[in-house]
Design a protein around this nucleic acid. Structure first.
Lengths: 149, 149
DNA sequence: CTAGCTGCAAATAATTTGCAGCAGC
DNA sequence: GCTGCTGCAAATTATTTGCAGCTAG
C-alpha cells in the first residue's frame, strides 16, 4: 500500500529540514490529480487558475524538488521541453508517443527490461536507468492518416 | 555497397536545387571522419582548427541539412544538448551512455526491436521510430567507482 | 527571530534568425 | 546576375538565478 503523495512530501521535507508551504502542497495536489506527463508550462497554467499569484520559477523549483523527493520523474522527449510524470510506486514503465496528436501511452514489458540488462552486461555496463520511447501513430490517428500532412 | 557520403550530399543538394559549398563539404568531411556522436559545439571546435572563419550558425544549419539528407541523425540525450551521429547504412542501433565519463556505446538487439513492435501493435500503435538509451557506468568507470562522488 | 521560500525580473544557455555581403550556377 | 549561403550579431526559447520581502518553525 502506497503512502499518499502529500504524506510522502511532508516526510521528505521534514527529513531534509525544508519547509512545508502552501505552494508546494497546492502544486502537488494539482500535479497528482491532473493525470500524468505535464510539461512545466501546462502545470503552470493549471496552477494559475486556482492560484494566480504563483510564479513560473516556483513551479520549476518545486518540480525539481518533487523529482528529488521521488514523487515525480523528469521526462525529456524529442520536442525539447521537460515533462514531469507522477511516480507511482508500481515499477518502471516506458512510453509510446503519438507523433500526430501528442498522446502518451505507458507500457511495461519485463522481457524488454531483461534484455536491456543483458545488453548492459555484455558491454560491461552497470545499468542505472534507461528510457525507451516508441514514436508513431496512435490508434485514433492511424485512421485520420489518409489526409495529406 | 554504400554511396560515399560526399556523393550522397551532392545528390541531395542537386535534387533540391541547393548549392554545393566549401563549408558543407568541409563540415561533412570533419563530421564523418571524426567518429560519431558529436555535439554541435564539439563539431564547431573541430571545424575551427581547419577553418577558423566558420560560423556557429553555419554548423547548426548544415547539420540540420545533413539530417534531412539522411546523412546524420539527431540525438537528444538527457544532458540537454543535441548531438549528431553519422548515419551508416547498417540498421538502427541504440545507445549505452556512461553517466560518469560520458562515453557512448552503440548496440543492436533484434529481439528488443521485435518486442517493441509487438508492444506497439498491442496498443494499436503504428511505430515509426524509437529510441532506447541505457544510462549507467561503463566498464572503466565501474572500477573507479569506490571514490566518493 | 531566522532560515528557507516566493515572485518578480533579469540572467543563462542552446539554438535560431535577420541581414548585408559573398559565392555557386 | 540572381539566388542561395555565410558570418556576425541580435533574437528566441526553455530554464535558472539574484534579490527583497514574506512565512513557517
Amino acid at each position: 500500500m502506497r503512502k499518499p503523495a502529500a504524506q510522502q512530501l511532508q516526510d521528505y521535507l521534514a527529513g531534509q529540514g525544508l519547509k512545508s508551504t502552501h505552494q508546494r502542497d497546492e502544486i502537488l495536489a494539482v500535479f497528482v490529480s491532473a493525470g500524468r506527463h505535464l510539461s512545466v508550462e501546462e502545470l503552470y497554467e493549471l496552477m494559475k487558475k486556482e492560484h494566480p499569484r504563483i510564479g513560473y520559477a516556483t513551479v520549476y523549483r518545486t518540480m525539481k524538488l518533487f523529482a528529488q523527493a521521488g514523487l515525480a520523474e523528469e521526462l525529456r522527449f524529442d520536442d525539447g521541453f521537460t515533462r514531469y510524470e507522477y511516480k507511482a510506486s508500481d515499477g518502471h514503465h516506458d512510453h509510446l508517443i503519438c507523433t500526430r496528436c501528442g498522446r502518451i501511452i505507458e507500457f511495461e514489458n519485463d522481457r524488454i527490461e531483461e534484455l536491456q540488462e543483458s545488453v548492459a552486461k555484455k558491454n560491461r555496463f552497470l545499468a542505472q536507468s534507461h528510457k525507451l520511447e516508441i514514436y508513431g501513430l496512435c490508434g485514433d490517428c492511424r485512421g485520420k492518416r489518409a489526409k495529406k500532412e
